[in-house]
């Protein structure tokens, strides 16, 4: 059971306060109709699911109810940091958007 830092509340809180939001940075295609079925299916269902560092979203359900980004290692449960969505995007891009 983790302790997560909510960048909006500025506090560390127990995992039970949060909801898991899945893989971060899967942008919705701007024009879904332009995608073929396979590309649409990829957006809908395909996930990186890495064993190692994972950029993911959590929402502070019983706190501010805001989504934020966490970089967590799925092999160890180590946490590298928490960011707001916008700041997290910058950190993610700075890494080259890789996992």
């Amino acid at each position: 059971m983790f302790v997560l830092f909510c960048p909006h509340c500025g506090e560390k809180r127990e995992e039970e306060e949060f909801g898991y939001g899945g893989e971060a940075f899967i942008p919705r295609p701007a024009t879904p109709e332009a995608l073929d079925d396979e590309a649409w299916g990829d957006y809908l269902f395909m996930r990186k699911n890495p064993k190692g560092w994972h950029w993911e979203m959590w929402s502070h359900n019983t706190g501010c109810r805001k989504f934020f980004v966490v970089k967590r290692n799925t092999a160890t449960n180590a946490i590298a940091g928490s960011w707001t969505l916008a700041e997290g995007r910058k950190a993610y891009d700075a890494e080259g958007g890789s996992t």
Partner: peptide, 13 residues
């Protein structure tokens, strides 16, 4: 509620 918040915050802030 969570569904709407997710879309609003992540896609259409």
């Amino acid at each position: 509620m969570t569904w709407l918040e997710k879309w609003h915050q992540t896609e259409w802030p």
